[in-house]
Design a protein around this nucleic acid. Structure first.
Length: 424
RNA sequence: GGAGUAGUACUCAAGUUGGCCGAAGAGGUGCCCCUGCUAAGGGUAUAGGGCGGGAAACUGUCGCGAGAGUUCGAAUCUCUCCUACUCCGCCA
């Protein structure tokens, strides 16, 4: 949620910068006008309420003294209707403002390149793409060759875009989850949680999924519960409606959860394999940062996610997203893209974002500093990393000519000493 | 899932024949005094926050789980919802 006070101050600059996302945000000028209307109405109604409060108090005193109050009661009664009418007008204008702001994304950081995804900037390349002396297969062919992922039966028991991990495939997925959580909790200072995998609408609003992206989520029929599209949702909302006393920033949370996405707008894209599933596993990293230091926190968060890929020796690059490619809540996002030999390209495996106070305003997450000043925190989130895509990247980068897959050294302890997955 | 009870400030808790309650009291915490440096005693302060007005001092309004209603006026009455606890049912 944008700060209405900032919008008041300089609506033109904000519109200009929002427009770099590739949409038209000139409607925000109306929002500023509505806000002025609102303040005029508020002043009027509060004046009336003040009088009414005073007169009502007087009635109470008079009644106690046994005086006749019918005249005064009738007089004050007149205020009631005016107050009611003004309150309705205020509610109406507030709803218009709220609805508009609820659908308005965050303002991109000034330093972010302007344009669509072709303008994303490569900040870093780690290691050269893996070389093979045979033709590298895509992960789904490797997986099916080893019989460790079953797409057909998943389609039978559920539907398309689902997978069943089997045998050493299931073990590898589980090993990755444990490896990532251990890394982040013991070496990077994150606090581990297992949150609910369903959340209510208010929580979905807090992190920006609702109201705009409703069709991308799964809603549990007959309830106000939604399957989480990422653990960012429950983790970021953990301190929803709270004032955190003297926090030690950056506060760090991590969780493994499955993630559920309807993929409404991606029919026909990535239909084969594990890249785009309705359900996938992810280890998520969430930070609350001091407003003055949230970009340092973003660097740290990105580095923490990178460490996963470095320890697994998976080549990747870091891309700073251009304005047109930024997510709704984000002001600045670094994507980690892992090298996928089977596709001969880099694919996103983590997305690390600084949302500034945008989500904190929506979820009402504040803190009180030593001076007693109450402020919104800055929230950040990033994958640390997407487990299914990491699994796929391992299959593609560690595949051998005979169809087997070497287990990355860092994972061997988590695989019970197994160093290679071979066809049985 | 059924039935009942409750939800007041950092904590506990009074207040529910509507007005003198934005809220007694206790604990906790801050500051001061006495003693002394281990207890203990006395005094005093301690809603935060949202939304407005104001250069500021300050001030208005809304806040007693949430929302709506009745009324000149609601913590107190009515309705809906949420949460916790107890009992029953079911169950990993």
């Amino acid at each position: 949620m944008l700060d209405i006070k900032k919008l008041r101050e300089d609506v033109e600059t904000i519109i200009e910068r929002l427009n770099t996302r590739g949409d038209d945000f000139s409607y925000l000028r109306d929002v500023v006008i509505w806000d002025e209307e609102r303040r005029v109405l508020v002043q009027k109604v509060e004046e009336l309420k003040s009088i009414r409060n005073e007169e009502s108090k007087k009635i109470g005193e008079m009644k106690r003294n046994g005086e006749d109050t019918t005249a005064l009661m009738a007089e004050v009664g007149q205020f009631g209707d005016d107050i009611k009418e003004l309150d309705l007008k205020i509610a109406d204008v507030e709803k218009r403002i709220f609805d508009a702001l609820a659908m308005t994304p965050n303002v991109p950081r000034e330093t972010v390149a302007i344009g669509d995804e072709d303008h994303n900037v490569c900040l870093k390349v780690w290691e050269e793409p893996t070389k093979f002396d045979f033709k590298a297969k895509p992960h789904y062919e490797v997986a099916e060759g080893l019989d460790i992922v079953d797409f057909e039966r998943a389609a039978k028991i559920t539907g398309s875009r689902f997978a069943i991990y089997k045998g050493l495939g299931a073990k590898l997925e589980r090993a990755l989850i444990a490896f990532m959580l251990d890394l982040h909790t013991t070496e990077h200072g994150y606090f581990e949680m297992i949150p609910p995998f369903m959340v209510n609408s208010k929580t979905m609003f807090g992190t920006g999924q609702l109201p705009k992206f409703e069709e991308d989520m799964f809603n549990v029929r007959g309830t106000d519960y939604w399957l989480i599209p990422t653990a960012e949702v429950p983790l970021t909302n953990y301190h929803q409606d709270e004032i955190i006393q003297n926090p030690s920033f950056p506060m760090r949370f991590t969780a493994y959860t499955p993630c559920f996405r309807a993929e409404a707008g991606s029919a026909g894209r990535d239909t084969r394999g594990l890249i785009r599933q309705h359900q996938f596993n992810k280890v998520e990293l969430v930070m609350y940062a001091h407003p003055d230091h949230s970009y340092e926190a973003l660097d740290l968060l990105t580095t923490n996610a990178e460490t996963v890929l470095q320890k697994l020796k998976l080549p990747y690059r870091v891309m700073q997203l251009a304005t047109g490619d930024l997510g709704f809540c984000s002001a600045n996002t670094n994507d980690l893209e892992v090298w996928m030999p089977g596709f001969d390209t880099y694919r996103e495996i983590s997305s690390c974002s600084n949302c500034l106070d945008f989500q904190a305003r929506r979820a009402n997450i504040r803190f009180k500093d030593e001076n007693g000043k109450v402020e919104f925190v800055h929230t950040l989130n990033g994958s640390g990393v997407a487990v299914g895509r990491c699994f796929s990247a391992i299959l593609e980068n560690y595949q051998q000519a005979d169809g087997s897959v070497i287990i990355p050294e860092a994972l061997v302890p988590y695989m019970g000493g197994i160093t290679k997955i071979e066809k049985l």
